[in-house]
Design a protein around this nucleic acid. Structure first.
Lengths: 201, 201
DNA sequence: GTCTATATTTGGATAGAC
DNA sequence: GTCTATCCAAATATAGAC
């Protein structure tokens, strides 16, 4: 879709590069530490030129939000096998989620928390996040975890691991290594996907 | 301790009032939205006068951090009965934690997350947070949950509930109401404090 | 599209009179 | 301790030439 001329293509490449560099800056300076001057300088232009590509700073955050959610979807699709999940598949998904979140705390902050005052993603961008959530819902529904309560408890356990890892042992694995165990705790409680014989504990 | 004259007492009262108002502003504008001008105006003085009470803006954040942790300790002590906890006592503690966190997302952000770039609490202030953690460790140790893994899994579950509630249903109870269930999930997994006969599910 | 120049606002912090 | 005045730095955003 969106088939366009080579001129528009160049423009989109530049937009993508700006978003790249914006992420780079935020990883270094924090989400609120993004400044248009700095951003422009690093892409080789002056601050006002950015307005040829984005209407405002919020529009840049929006593009970052969208990009981050696209990366998230890709990461999860790569890590999770097709078809109905067994207990090992759920663990793979959990590890992928926690690893994705802890690999980039600032990205976690923008995608999954509400920390930039006044920033709301546009509906088109938010749709990417919703699509990712719906994909998770679909997969968990297949194994009997489709109720809202089951899903919410699942997201709570996953977010809790990521959150504690980021807040109290950034770059480490103190909570990350508890992921498989947390999945067992959750699945046992829900009474689905009993552990296979000979499975590792 | 710190017995002092009436002059010093007045000073401490003013300091406390400044911290009060600082929290009020942050609840409205977000943690990063605190400005010394605004703060001073609301306390009835001009910005430079604040420097008679605090050395810098960071010092104000530090006092807020300390105050918040003191409130947290008080809230938990009020909610959790003395003596060894049974399953109901653990649930009371869990509800107290999740309620405390979700009642004030900005406070949760300052106390339990790392979101203000460059802010590190002073050792004296951090000591309050550590004391709270040690009290939790002591209580959980009494019921056989004193291992670091058990504690970390506990904090992950609690933080996950609070985090999801704040991020995805602020002011609501979508995750908050799962607290008792999450405690059951955790305690069953850990194999401690078996449910009493006739206990509510 | 990109630039220079600038408007405009706002922030933390300091100097020095009272 | 509090004030006025000010410094200094940085921010987003716009105007208009090229």
């Amino acid at each position: 879709m969106t088939p366009v001329g080579i001129r528009e293509q160049r423009r989109q490449e530049t937009r993508a590069r700006i978003v790249d560099v914006a992420w780079e800056i935020c990883r270094q300076q924090g989400l609120a530490g993004l400044s248009l001057r700095d951003l422009a300088a690093r892409v080789g232009m002056r601050a006002p030129s950015l307005y040829s590509y984005f209407d405002s700073k919020h529009a840049i955050y929006d593009a970052m939000f969208r990009r981050g959610n696209e990366e998230f979807g890709t990461a999860m699709r790569c890590a999770v096998p097709d078809g109905p999940l067994d207990r090992g598949g759920i663990k793979a998904a959990a590890r992928a989620f926690v690893d994705f979140c802890t690999a980039d705390p600032v990205r976690y902050q923008l995608l999954f928390q509400r920390t930039i005052p006044g920033f709301e993603p546009l509906p088109e961008s938010f749709a990417v996040a919703i699509a990712n959530y719906e994909e998770m819902r679909r997969q968990l529904t297949e194994v009997g975890l489709g109720s809202q309560e089951a899903l919410d408890l699942w997201t709570a356990v996953m977010a809790g691991l990521a959150d504690q890892q980021i807040a109290n042992d950034p770059g480490g694995e103190r909570w990350r290594r508890l992921t498989d165990r947390a999945v067992d705790m959750y699945l046992d409680h829900m009474g689905v996907l009993p552990p296979q014989q000979g499975e590792q504990t």
